[in-house]
C-alpha cells in the first residue's frame, strides 16, 4: 500500500547499494511495507545524473552509506546521493552500520539528510516513518533537533597525525565535547581559517542531542 503524506504518494522505492545481496535485503524490507522496489544496478557517475535518471523510475530512495567498496558501482558515497535527492525534494533515507560513518560523513551534507538509520536491517515501519519525516521537512516542518541556528564555533585543535582532521567545540551546544571535522568538507574560503584558537560562525542544528546528528552549513568568514 503506498505511503500517502502531505498530498504526496510514495509507491516505488529505488534501493542503492554496491553489494547486490544487500540490495535484495533492503528490498525485502520495503516490499514488506507494501511498496514496489527497483534496484539501482550502477554504475553511477555523479549525483545529478542519478537524479536525472530517477525521473519516473521511483518516488523515493533508500541508500547505503558506502557505495564504493565494490568497484565500478559509484563515484560517490550515499551521503552525497541522499543530500542531492533532498535538494530535489525526493524523499531519501541513508542507512549504514559502518562504524566510522559518523566520523567521516560530510557534515555540511547532514543538513540535507533528515534520516540516517544506523543499521542495515531497517524495519518496514522505520522506513515508512523516515519517508514521512522527509516529506514533512520539504513542507518546512523541521523538528527542533534539525533547526539551524547561527552558532559560534571554536577551533579547538588541528590534528597533525591525521591530515585534514580538526576538532571544534560549540560553546552553545556542549563545551566539553570535541567534534571531529574535516578541512576538505569546508568551503574553500573557510579552509585557510582553520587554525587552533580561531572562532567562526556557521549554521548548526544545536537542538540535536548527539554529535553524530549535527550539521554545519553556511560558514562565515567574519
Amino acid at each position: 500500500m503506498p505511503i500517502l503524506t502531505q498530498g504526496r504518494r510514495i509507491n516505488r522505492v529505488l534501493v542503492v547499494d554496491d553489494e547486490p545481496g544487500s540490495r535484495d535485503g533492503f528490498s525485502e524490507s520495503i516490499e514488506d511495507l507494501g511498496l514496489d522496489v527497483v534496484c539501482e544496478p550502477g554504475p553511477m557517475d555523479d549525483p545529478d545524473s542519478f537524479i536525472a535518471s530517477l525521473c519516473g523510475k521511483a518516488d523515493a530512495v533508500l541508500s547505503d552509506f558506502r557505495l564504493r567498496v565494490i568497484g565500478h558501482y559509484s563515484n560517490f558515497d550515499g551521503d552525497r546521493l541522499v543530500a542531492t535527492c533532498y535538494q530535489h525534494q525526493i524523499p531519501a533515507l541513508l542507512c549504514s552500520s559502518f562504524t566510522d560513518a559518523s566520523t567521516v560523513i560530510d557534515r555540511s551534507l547532514m543538513r540535507f539528510i533528515p534520516v540516517f538509520l544506523p543499521t542495515t536491517t531497517p524495519q518496514p515501519e522505520d522506513i515508512e516513518a523516515g519517508f514521512i519525516r522527509c516529506v514533512e521537512e520539504f513542507a518546512g516542518n523541521l523538528p527542533p533537533s534539525r533547526r539551524p541556528w547561527r552558532t559560534l564555533i571554536h577551533i579547538h585543535d588541528v590534528d597533525d597525525s591525521m591530515e585534514g582532521l580538526f576538532h571544534v567545540i560549540l560553546p552553545g551546544w556542549n563545551v566539553r565535547e570535541k567534534i571531529p571535522l574535516w578541512r576538505d568538507h569546508l568551503p574553500a574560503n573557510i579552509q585557510p581559517l582553520v587554525q587552533p584558537g580561531k572562532w567562526l560562525h556557521a549554521q548548526v542544528n544545536i537542538g540535536a542531542e548527539e554529535y553524530q546528528d549535527l550539521y554545519f552549513d553556511e560558514w562565515e568568514t567574519e
Binding site: E19, G21, S22, D24, G25, F26, E28, S29, D32, R66, V69, I70, S97, F98, T99, T120, T121, Q123, P124
Partner: peptide
C-alpha cells in the same frame, strides 16, 4: 573488520531479518 561489517555480515543480517519477519 571493515569488510565483514560492510558486506557479508550485512547480507546475512538482512536475510535473516527478512526470514524472521516473514
Amino acid at each position: 573488520a571493515h569488510e565483514s561489517a560492510g558486506n557479508p555480515i550485512k547480507v546475512i543480517d538482512q536475510s535473516i531479518a527478512t526470514v524472521e519477519r516473514r
